[in-house]
């Protein structure tokens, strides 16, 4: 029973489009593991293959090659979806159903029986902030409300795995925070969560691990701390700072700049960093702080993606 909630090996997907047999390579050898209790962020520019990955995990689209399993069950088997909740990108619920009816129908499709559903629907609508809209037809919902309903529908059968494609799309800032908290709660209950999003600050705040997709491949993967740590740049607070100190530090080979009363220096390795510290002390200055500089997730993302979009920003053109 040690099968991972989400496991993918070497996923490749070539979409054939048009009659002339043009193909778009949406995924090109993707490996993915998501563990229980983990919130995993899948990032990448438009057309990178995020939605395609999720669709393959749900059996909506067949991978050209490679394999994917949910709890060890191959994704081609409908049983693999029994413990999965999915929030699709741009989903459209039948407009003639009310929020409550929607959850009842889709809950039953996931095999939940009547009594269990009755006890689950009200608290769930409350949790996503739709309690007072429970008997309103879905066609009257605003975009953010539809998104909240989608989240409720993904949770109605209390799944072990959540696959969410842009879960906070169209949701107001307060709602986004609520959704973030709700997802964190689910992760803390041991659910494995895979989130696709463009909102990097949100991902940075909630996800345990992220992968950045570029043109169907993983360009970088790791915890937020791993990705954002820039081990070559440090913040150094010393006093006093004078030009002689700067000159002395530069003699070690470090690049040093003065920023708002402290120093930022680059060091090739720890030896060079410690050499810089020796210079500071040798000059009788006092060291107050020395810490690695962190980039924001956005900086990392832009750095990773930029080389690919030199020829022109935006999604890659069909070949």
């Amino acid at each position: 029973m040690s099968a991972l909630p989400i496991e993918a090996r070497g996923l490749r997907k070539a979409y054939r489009s048009g009659l002339k047999g043009r193909t778009v390579l949406a995924l090109d050898g993707l490996d993915l593991d998501v563990r229980p209790g983990e919130m995993f962020g899948l990032l990448g520019p438009n057309g990178a293959g995020k939605t395609t990955t999720v669709k393959i995990l749900l059996g909506l689209t067949r991978a050209t090659s490679g394999e994917a399993r949910l709890f060890g069950i191959p994704v081609g088997n409908p049983e693999s979806r029994r413990r999965v909740g999915y929030l699709p990108e741009g989903h459209r619920f039948p407009g003639y159903l009310t929020a409550r009816e929607t959850l009842a129908i889709f809950g039953r499709m996931s095999g939940v029986d009547g009594p269990a559903l009755r006890s689950r629907i009200e608290p769930l609508l409350d949790r996503v902030g739709l309690a007072s809209w429970r008997d309103v037809r879905v066609k009257k919902f605003s975009k953010g409300m539809t998104q909240r309903l989608g989240l409720a529908a993904a949770l109605v059968h209390d799944p072990q795995v959540l696959l969410l494609d842009e879960p906070t799309d169209g949701v107001d800032p307060v709602g986004r925070r609520e959704i973030r908290d709700l997802l964190r709660e689910e992760a803390d209950r041991g659910r494995a969560i895979l989130v696709n999003s463009h909102l990097l600050s949100e991902i940075e705040r909630t996800c345990d691990r992220v992968a950045v997709l570029r043109a169907g491949r993983i360009a970088a993967q790791g915890t937020i701390a791993e990705l954002t740590a820039q081990t070559t740049r440090y913040r150094m607070a010393v006093s006093p700072i004078d030009d002689a100190l700067l000159a002395s530090l530069r003699e070690t080979g470090s690049e040093v700049t003065r920023v708002n009363g402290h120093l930022e220096l680059s060091a090739r390795d720890l030896v060079q960093l410690n050499a810089a510290v020796d210079r500071v002390r040798a000059r009788g200055a006092l060291l107050e702080e020395l810490s690695p500089l962190r980039a924001s997730l956005e900086d990392v993302f832009v750095d990773l993606i930029a080389p690919a979009s030199v020829a022109g920003a935006g999604p890659k053109e069909p070949s």
Partner: peptide, 16 residues
């Protein structure tokens, strides 16, 4: 089969 609708049905444990 409408886009955005089919996903909701096929993501349930029901065979096609």
């Amino acid at each position: 089969q409408e886009k955005g609708t089919i996903d909701l049905y096929l993501s349930r444990p029901v065979g096609r």
